[in-house]
Nucleic acid binder design. Structure first.
Length: 425
RNA sequence: AGAGAGUUGCCGGAGUGGUCGAACGGGCUCGCCUGGAAAGCGAGUAAACCCUAACCGGGUUUCGAGGGUUCGAAUCCCUCACUCUCUGCCA
């Protein structure tokens, strides 16, 4: 959620950036928010005047009662009725204005950072660089779903039988490969200074709201209505919410946490060839990084996190490219996002395997996550997160890029201590 | 899942309708004392919001959350969440 104080200070600048993200009438929307906030202040000022008056009167009634001046006390009581009604009215007005303001703010996405290119869709994303060896095949490379079937390591039909489409079953070496990747990613993250967290896989409404899933992505989460819980779409949600309503001492910063969790996504509306195989699932595994840092350091942190994830792809011997997402392709909450994509020779396209974002204060504003300055001021921190990494697409990339002429899959050196086999098949 | 007890400030813990933002103890910060330290003494020690040029000052709200009764609620009533104990069930 954007901060009202900042909207007030930099209305035009923010409006301009919101427009780049496709918000219609950005200036008008911001001005409406400021008008509502002005109105709120007016009402609050009046409200508090009446409340102060009520407090005064109540106090004096207490004194009169004590002194035994019953009639005087009764008379004073009668006089309060009008003020009381007025307070009720004003309270209703404040709450109306506040919910209107909140509604307007909730609708607004984060404003893209100045360095984010303007654009509407994936086509406008910028390729920052490509790295890694191009895999050359002297045979016809097969897509991962065929390889997985051949080696009987991933079974979509079984998953469909026991649950439904998009819930594959990993078997034998497939299951071991998953477990190996998770351990590998977690060990690397720990070496890089991240504390490992095992969070709950369901969260309450407050948590889903604070990181921006609600109300924006309501329909994308599995919702357990009976208990009011949401299945997490990413570990970002519980891990970032660890710090909801916290004031962090400066010497604890930056907060660096990571976690492995399954992720659950309804993916309502997805269809077509691009959702084949492991490309888009309802349940998948992911190791996620979350950092919370000082505002002035968040863009360095974004770079640091992205480079870190790239080092994982290097270790897995995968050719990748870094994309700087354009204003129109970023998620609701992000101010700047880098995507990392691995080239799949078999599918002849780039697969997104990681997304690293700086949310600036968009999440921390809802989280009320602040730090205390030397002067004892409370300032909102910045939050960032990144996948390191999402398993299905990494598995797909490994299968497709490391397949051999005989159909076997070569396991990259770095992963062998974890799989304890060098090839599949 | 059933029965009971509880949820108060950084921590412990009083407080059952008015003078309670909250006794008392501990912690922490600053000052005094000291060669230095301990002890001791003194002062301070929540958050959000409103008024204001103001980091001065004044005001409002907050004692698990939300609603209600009342002139007035930490204190009474209702709903919910959480914690603990016992019983039940079960990885």
């Amino acid at each position: 959620m954007l901060e009202i104080a900042k909207i007030r200070q930099k209305t035009e600048e923010i409006a301009g950036n919101l427009a780049r993200k496709g918000v219609a009438n950005a200036t008008e929307v911001l001005q409406e928010i400021l008008r509502l906030d002005d109105r709120r202040k007016e009402i609050v000022t009046e409200l508090e005047k009446y409340r102060a008056e009520m407090n005064q009167t109540s106090k004096s009634i207490g004194l009169l009662m004590r002194e035994g001046k019953k009639e005087e006390a009764e008379a004073a009581k009668k006089q309060t009725a009008e003020t009381k009604d007025r307070i009720k009215e004003l309270e209703q007005e404040v709450s109306d204005v506040q919910s209107k303001t909140k509604y307007e703010l909730d609708e607004l996405p984060n404003a893209p950072h100045a360095s984010v290119p303007t654009g509407k869709s994936v086509e406008d994303n910028e390729v920052v660089f490509e790295r890694g060896d191009v895999t050359k095949f002297d045979f016809d490379p097969k897509p991962h779903w065929e390889l997985a079937r051949k080696h009987d390591i991933i079974d979509w039909e079984l998953g469909a039988k026991i649950t439904g489409a998009g819930f594959p079953v990993y078997k034998g070496d497939g299951a071991i490969l998953q477990r190996a990747l998770i351990s590998f990613f977690l060990d690397k993250a720990r070496e890089a200074g991240y504390q490992e967290i095992q969070p709950p896989l369901m969260v309450n409404e407050d948590s889903a709201y604070a990181t921006g899933q609600l109300p924006d992505k309501e329909g994308q989460m599995y919702h357990i209505e009976k208990d009011g819980f949401y299945m997490i779409p990413t570990a970002e949600v519980p891990i970032t919410n660890l710090y909801r309503n916290d004031i962090i001492a400066m010497d604890r910063l930056p907060l660096k946490n990571c976690g492995y969790t399954p992720c659950f996504r309804r993916e309502a509306g997805s269809y077509g060839a691009h959702v084949k195989g492991l490309n888009r699932l309802h349940q998948f595994d992911k190791v996620e990084l979350v950092q919370v840092c000082l505002p002035e350091k968040s863009y360095d942190t974004l770079e640091e996190m992205t480079s870190y994830v790239e080092s994982l792809l290097d270790a897995l011997e995968l050719r990748f490219r870094r994309l700087l997402l354009c204003s129109g392709d970023m998620s609701h909450a992000s101010a700047k996002t880098f995507d990392l994509e691995v080239f799949s020779a078999a599918q002849e396209r780039w697969l997104e395997v990681s997304s690293v974002s700086n949310f600036e204060t968009f999440q921390t504003n809802r989280l009320k996550l602040r730090y205390r300055t030397e002067e004892n001021k409370k300032i909102l921190l910045h939050s960032l997160n990144g996948s390191a990494l999402a398993l299905p697409r990494i598995v797909a990339s490994l299968l497709e890029n490391h397949q051999q002429a005989d159909g076997s899959i070569r396991i990259p050196e770095a992963l062998r201590p974890y799989t304890r086999f060098d090839q599949i098949g």
